[in-house]
């Protein structure tokens, strides 16, 4: 009975999500919704290494940039479809994640976080100062403009926003499915265990470094796909926006505020906070420079102070209040808490 209700709710939600483009007809609003879903997607991708495995990456902008630049450089120069290019971009991101992870995942403490910061700062500088790379035009600080070919599904260029909406919706479902698979598989158990205590995890036969590397690779690949989507949507890559610190920290932010280490936390955090940020900007953006950012910051602060386990834990409590003592996802690792 309970299960049926849940399933019904899920189907209803999916139908509503599929019908959104018919209800939201103004392209601006649809664009806002697309960006919210993109942030939810990126936060969920970060969550695989940052939340499940508990390895704080402060440089995921590296992977969005790698995915976006590699794919678009291949497209601009050789006309290779982004549908194929995204695999090359994804592979390049995976390679970089291994280069960062392999030397640092064996170490304790903040080394991984520091390495991600250092390398992402380096990448921003490199992109900003590189105009040509072999046959490819990178664009340097002026940015890379995606070559326009008119409406084309192969090039992922559409004059309407609707195809982008369905694309990012599909990607979001994909990352949720991947997260669900990780969480319920051996890998997920190993990741949460090593996040809790590396020594105990190793004593129970878990190869700590390899498990972290696998999580980092999956996370990098998914994040790179987000970068490709950004590139085809915006059609202009500005080094600081796609690779910079704000891109990297935003993913961390949304994931932690939403509830890192859970499947739905980063999704909820990404959609809700992006929406709030956009609404505040819409109404207050023109009045006082930076006011909307300040208010946004206060909201984030309040969530962290009063609900450090994330919005998803708060929602869990609310659902529990209305449906009786039924276990719901929530908490640091999203496990059932029936203890006192």
């Amino acid at each position: 009975m309970k299960f049926d209700k849940k399933l019904l709710l899920l189907i209803g939600l999916v139908v509503i999500l599929l019908l959104v483009p018919m209800m939201v007809t103004r392209p601006y609003f649809l664009h806002v919704i697309i960006m919210c879903l993109l942030w939810a997607y990126l936060a969920s991708s970060w969550n695989i290494i940052g939340g499940f495995a508990g390895q704080l990456s402060l440089g995921h902008g590296i992977y969005t940039a790698t995915g976006a630049y590699v794919t678009m450089m291949l497209f601009n120069t050789f006309g290779i479809s982004p549908w194929l290019g995204l695999f090359v971009g994804g592979a390049a991101a995976v390679l970089i994640s291994v280069l960062i992870g392999f030397p640092t995942f064996g170490l304790r403490g903040a080394y991984y976080a520091l390495a991600t910061v250092a390398i992402s700062e380096g990448i921003v500088v490199i992109i900003n100062s590189t105009h040509e790379l072999g046959p490819f035009s990178v664009g340097g600080a002026e940015g890379l403009i995606v070559k326009m070919v008119g409406d084309s599904a192969a090039a992922l260029q559409f004059s309407s926003k609707i195809p982008y909406y369905y694309l990012i919706l599909f990607m979001l479902f994909l990352v949720i499915a991947v997260s669900y698979w990780i969480k319920t598989s051996k890998l997920g158990y190993c990741l949460i265990a090593l996040k809790e205590d590396e020594d105990a995890a190793a004593a129970m036969g878990i190869n700590v470094r390899n498990n972290k590397l696998i999580a980092a690779m999956i996370s990098a690949f998914m994040t790179a796909l987000g970068g490709v989507f950004y590139a085809v949507l915006i059609r202009y890559l500005e080094p600081n926006a796609i690779a910079g610190g704000s891109m990297s920290t935003q993913m961390v932010f949304l994931s932690i505020v939403g509830g890192s280490g859970t499947i739905l936390g980063p999704v909820i955090g990404g959609i809700l906070l992006s929406l709030i940020s956009e609404v505040i900007r819409f109404y207050l953006g023109g009045q006082l420079m930076g006011l909307h950012l300040f208010i946004y910051g206060v909201i984030v602060l309040l969530v962290i102070m009063y609900q450090p386990r994330g919005i998803v834990a708060l929602l869990g409590q609310i659902v529990q209040r209305f449906s009786g003592p039924k276990t719901v996802e929530g908490g640091v690792s999203g496990v059932k808490d029936s203890g006192a």
Partner: peptide
């Protein structure tokens, strides 16, 4: 593993 249930703790092993 403090944030995992008893069952999940043992499953890791």
């Amino acid at each position: 593993f403090g944030n995992m249930t008893v069952e999940q703790n043992i499953m890791v092993g």
